[in-house]
């Protein structure tokens, strides 16, 4: 418990197999942003491609990648990005298992994941990182570059490609099916 890892994206199985719930991670490299509407579009395309028996036309390759659930505030002139903390991950649970099946290796957000998502992380070997909700300014300082990738019409909900440096994260679900939310509550619960 509570080791510190500095890791780089894209993620491979060997790297993420070392991570256990409660570990602290400083993430470096590229992460893609996506939230509710972008997830819906990604999964719609995957399903459509499946039905039509063709390769899906996705705005970025999923293999080994990490998605960050965020909708940044507008940036002031001279800033790379506005405050950019995580949004609630549970809203993406409907879509996450299919993305994990297609090779996504990590997700970043705040709050609990659903049972199906936790199962899928174990099955397809992926991890869920918690970024501290509300630490939007601190996190924005660790984002060095931003580029729009797709769905610009969605404004703050578009897909952006972020280059991050030492993005501070906590492993909340590991590839072994463990859940820090459950374990943490059990450990610190006081029965009166």
């Amino acid at each position: 418990m509570n080791n510190l890892f500095r890791i780089e994206t894209p993620l491979d199985e060997e790297t993420i197999s070392k991570l256990k719930i409660g570990d602290k991670v400083l993430l470096n490299g590229i992460v893609y942003t996506a939230r509710d509407q972008a997830h819906k579009r990604l999964v719609d395309e995957l399903e459509k491609a499946g039905k039509e028996n063709r390769q899906p036309n996705l705005p970025f390759p999923l293999e080994g990648q990490v998605i960050y659930y965020v909708g940044p505030a507008p940036s002031r002139p001279g800033m790379v990005i506005g405050p950019a903390g995580p949004t609630t991950s549970g809203r993406m649970d409907t879509y996450t298992p299919i993305l994990l099946e297609k090779g996504l290796k990590g997700t970043i957000g705040k709050g609990r994941r659903g049972k199906d998502t936790i199962e899928a992380m174990k099955k397809y070997k992926a991890v869920y990182f918690v970024a501290v909700g509300g630490a939007a300014v601190l996190i924005s300082k660790r984002i060095k570059r931003i580029e729009t990738v797709a769905y610009e019409d969605l404004g703050p909900e578009a897909i952006y490609r972020l280059e991050v440096e030492d993005f501070p994260l906590i492993v909340a679900n590991d590839v072994y099916g463990n859940d820090l939310f459950d374990e943490g509550m059990k450990k610190y619960r006081k029965v009166t």
Binding site: A73, G82, G85, G133, L138
Partner: peptide, 18 residues
């Protein structure tokens, strides 16, 4: 991390949360 974030936000007059 929360306290550090809030201190930075006040100092730079940025919104605490996106």
């Amino acid at each position: 991390e929360i306290l550090e974030n809030d201190r930075m936000a006040e100092e730079e007059k940025l919104p605490l949360c996106q």
